[in-house]
Design a binder for these strands. Structure first.
Lengths: 160, 160, 160, 160
DNA sequence: TTTT
DNA sequence: TTTT
């Protein structure tokens, strides 16, 4: 749509180590879940309450995926900037269901490590992502293979 | 979780008029779907492609809900700032499913009309939302009724 | 710095037509000012008040610059996503001063037209910006000339 | 302006301890500078380059100010969400100058501590900011004194 | 300098 | 003035 914006910004911690999956196109995705939580004082009881939300993040960019795979672990704190995408999948009982994910695409999105143990950053900048740590070879976005809709080619039906 | 951020920013158009629903708590919610879309040139065919995403937006803030009800219509362009929330619901076949929504809560979020026909804005500012049009009475946030988790009390199981 | 984020999101109207300038490097920048405003009810008098802020936006990306030049005019409503940058300049009296701008860089940022008259969008996606209108030739980001710090080579000292 | 958005999101480190200042209205502001930086590989030399930006953050919300004063120190990593504001001030030579700041206002903005040493969060939610650490008394936003434009009453002319 |  |  002309003139639309679809942006999600999360700061939270990974619930588990990232998972790497292969697509039929040959590309890979790296995915993980990020927890965010709200805390508030209950209006009537005065109790402290907390509600945690889990967000499924999927990375389609090869370089950011490598960095996620290399540096993110269960418990890592990250800044994620991606797009909201809802897709269909077929569950184990053969029923079609929806799953909504935060997608860091091939040419859009951001991933920044916030852990003090060695924060790094990886974004779409300059002639390639600015990676502060690690020695991954630089690759210009435009030369990366795979199409934008390659995520439709995921090998499996179970989303997570 | 200490130190987390959960933010969604959308600019898009409503697919239908907003829907108003009552909660058992007596409060109301106003909800609607917003379309955003990406366009790109297919890498191999060179074709122009477009993918539309639909986002379910739910407003729990009374004042913003009133404004949405009053000024938003099918086709309206809006700026929405809310939080990602995934909740369970039971579908018509009795199966438990997940639905992810962009929630404009009682004390957090933003809604801005972008239509030239009379853009308005409604946010949590000053002593109440700054409403540029309409004559809705001002209500200080802290005096609004209902609790943060009142959305769990929705009257029905079908999410949209 | 490892793990940093610098992001500005604006929705507002242009005060004047965009200005195009040439850099010594041969590249061009397109810049314009965007107005945003807050309205609120004065706590004591109850009066409706409004405060307008002007934001200087500078585009270093050739394609987005072309689109801005082509489609943005005085009064146009836009969504801008850029980075905050403060730089020194020498004013007409020879004094060094600071100017803070919202920069849409070569490989980062977003510009979306929100006018009903023909909203368009132009972002860093896929193999080039997704331009919904106009016929500007597609150019892959990695092939664009000029360096990231080329903005230091602006031909003149007066920032706006 | 009807339908405008003015939002800055920063993740970075404080260059010094926060500074507390009193306003003639009796309120206080807490301010500090946050550094963000970009790194990239120079296109011609291949050298690793880095450019740091400093952002002036000013907090007008009493509760968030207290938290900043209590928990932020030189080197602390924070997530800041505020508004861009440019104001005039008179420098030591009597010249009028502009300074642009990221303002966390009375009813708008966010501050989240990202340090592993004990991340906390403080936002405008529910009946008061959700503070995960510290024992600051809760205060409902609507009961806080001072007006939105009280920042115009700053006691001094020198901005930082 | 915009817009409402 | 931070951080890596």
């Amino acid at each position: 749509m002309a003139g639309s914006v679809n942006k999600v910004i999360l700061v939270g911690n990974l619930g588990r180590d990232p998972e790497v999956r292969s697509m039929q196109s040959g590309g890979r995705t790296v995915s993980f879940s990020v927890a965010t939580s709200e805390t508030w004082n209950d209006r009537t009881t005065g109790e402290r309450k907390e509600k945690t939300q889990w967000h499924r993040v999927v990375i389609f960019n090869e370089k950011l995926g490598e960095i996620a795979e290399k540096y993110l672990r269960k418990g890592s704190k990250v800044y994620v900037e991606g797009q909201l995408e809802t897709r269909k999948y077929t569950d184990k009982d053969g029923n079609e269901r929806d799953i909504t994910e935060v997608v860091i695409g091939r040419f859009k999105g951001d991933l920044t490590l916030l852990d003090s143990r060695g924060g790094g950053t990886a974004e779409f900048e300059d002639e390639g992502p600015a990676v502060q740590r690690g020695s991954a070879a630089r690759t210009a976005p435009a030369r990366q293979g795979g199409g934008w809709d390659s995520r439709r080619e995921l090998d499996d039906d179970i989303p997570f």
